[in-house]
Design a protein around this nucleic acid. Structure first.
Lengths: 198, 198
DNA sequence: CACTTGATTGAACGTTCATTCAAGAGGAAT
DNA sequence: ATTCCTCTTGAATGAACGTTCAATCAAGTG
């Protein structure tokens, strides 16, 4: 049996992702969870607090919900990066290109976010890029000496978010695929540069 | 003297950019333009038609509003690309990192867009990447033979949008700067590869 | 002058929204 | 049995929203 709080968070994760924060009404959450407004407001003081709960859930669940499923069978650290990207690709395909990264969508939808909300968005991005940075560290000398691994990890996120945005807009996964290809080319150039130093 | 239509488009371009589409009310547009609701609805059948007008204005104004100001003094085709990115950087700084690319923001905010709206978003992206593609064509043999210039141009957009998103979320331009740096590194690797073929 | 046209006015409409709250249900402790 | 506390109910609230429309106005037109 799941608590009202868990029900709401689960429903809100899905609805905020599908419809966005502003376009998801409290009534939507209530009908999805079969709860009454009083129960919701007993648990969350306001709609924004539901959003905060959702962002905390993403933050706390990144390992189980995202990384472990993506990396189950992949050992090579650089392939882990592309396995993660491939997971996003799967979601794009499964949702007929309407998929948007839930964090990225919220980051652009909320134009004047509350500081706590903004910080949680930032924290989610940080955790994501830190996971990539871990892969880069594990890749050791396959990237050239002096590579700014944090910047490179952030660039992976950049490529992912930009690729998702274009795929969604054009309703065509190939835009995401090309972004990943370009990133792959960049990594191959880096690996080549690491092998044969000047 | 500007027509009611022009006034509304101008106000809507700014407000949709600052606050987003859903969070901009008709009342916002009316108070900003000093018009009455009837006048607005005489010109635009619905709020969505205002959005369409805005997207058409961006599409038709890309040369004057974006490319010419960015490229005024720049001749080198690859530097043109980075001059354009630098223009976005200026906007980020001038708006204290609250800037979002107006097209990209709308692309992620509108979760189930009308087909006309979606197509206009896509058209804006296409025009943008085609401008970059023109630069790559002009760069001639500085990029390796067989480079997929369209994919590379789309990757520039990818990097821009991803960088803007992260700068906005972290309230820190340096995220955009690092995305541009990584892209610059990629271009330098490409130029090196073009000079010394295998 | 009578008449038409197209733009403008702004109050009003119906809906939807997030939020509130008085009333009650269910259990555990006394 | 009674008190106490947490949680639930769902109708009600009031603000904000996009949109409508009868009325008015200014500028032609014949």
């Amino acid at each position: 049996m799941s608590s009202a709080r868990e029900k709401i968070i689960q429903a809100a994760m899905e609805l905020f992702w599908l419809k966005g924060y502003n376009s998801t009404s409290i009534a939507d959450l209530l009908s999805r969870t079969q709860l009454n407004s009083g129960s919701l407001y007993h648990v969350f003081p306001s709609k924004q607090d539901v959003l905060i709960g959702v962002l905390e859930a993403y933050r706390d669940g990144i390992e189980q919900m995202l990384l472990e499923p993506a990396w189950g069978e992949v050992a090579d650290p650089i392939e882990k990066i592309f396995a993660l990207l491939n997971r996003y690709r799967t979601m794009i395909v499964e949702t007929d290109c309407t998929y948007g990264c839930p964090i990225g969508s919220l980051a652009l939808e909320l134009h004047e976010p509350d500081p706590r909300v903004r910080e949680l968005l930032a924290e989610n991005f940080r955790n994501w890029t830190q996971a990539i940075e871990g892969c880069l560290d594990a890749a050791g000398k396959r990237v050239p000496r002096g590579t700014d691994k944090k910047a490179l990890a952030q660039f992976v996120l950049t490529a992912m978010e930009g690729g998702v945005m274009q795929s969604r807009t054009h309703l065509d996964v190939s835009y995401f695929d090309r972004a990943v290809e370009q990133l792959r080319a960049h990594f191959e150039l880096l690996e080549k540069a690491a092998k044969a130093p000047a």
